[in-house]
Write a protein that binds this DNA or RNA. Sequence first.
DNA 1: GTAACGTGCAACTCGTCAGTTGCCTGAGTT
DNA 2: AACTCAGGCAACTGACGAGTTGCACGTTAC
Lengths: 95, 95
Amino acid sequence: MSDPLGLVFGALADPSRRQVIGYLSERGTATATELTGELPMTRQAVSKHLAALAGAGLVAAERRGRETRYRLTETGEEWDGRLDALRAHLERRHT
Amino acid sequence: MSDPLGLVFGALADPSRRQVIGYLSERGTATATELTGELPMTRQAVSKHLAALAGAGLVAAERRGRETRYRLTETGEEWDGRLDALRAHLERRHT
DNA sequence: GTAACGTGCAACTCGTCAGTTGCCTGAGTT
DNA sequence: AACTCAGGCAACTGACGAGTTGCACGTTAC
């Protein structure tokens, strides 16, 4: 779609995807099946979320043998750092 | 939905809405009908976008007589300031 | 070689969202 | 009072996104 900003904001708009970012930040790396244990949905759904995050450039996939490990990109790490600050910022502003 | 962060990112994910933020930043204030002249859509559509932005707390509505004037909130201005930087940031990273 | 595991792909349902049109209401105007 | 202009509300269409199920393919283990 050639709307990089839209892809990033669109990816971050979904709570499940922000959660995935949090998990990846804690563990450094994970596969879709591993993440499925943490989210109330099927592996396929998680996989689609990871694809969206990858499309936005927040996450990178690396296939190793029969499994695909995902990790945060530099951009993804930056956003993970901002998320808590933004959350607090919004709480403060609109309460 | 009580997902403030989701509302903000969701609002910013749409190019038309980011454009509205830009216009409001330039002119300070505008009505839905005025903005309709700048966007390839009907007044109703613009009005819905403004409602989304207002729901995310990026824009505030003030009714004055028979017209409703919209302006950026403090949060909205902050995001307007960040958008260009983010755009440039992404260009640099993924080209 | 065969069985099991991790993944990817395709088709489908369901809900939401962008955008439209049509109508109705309230605030100025003459 | 009659008219006009700006907005809001409701119903509808079309597209997209989230999530599911079923199946097929490559990789590791036995």
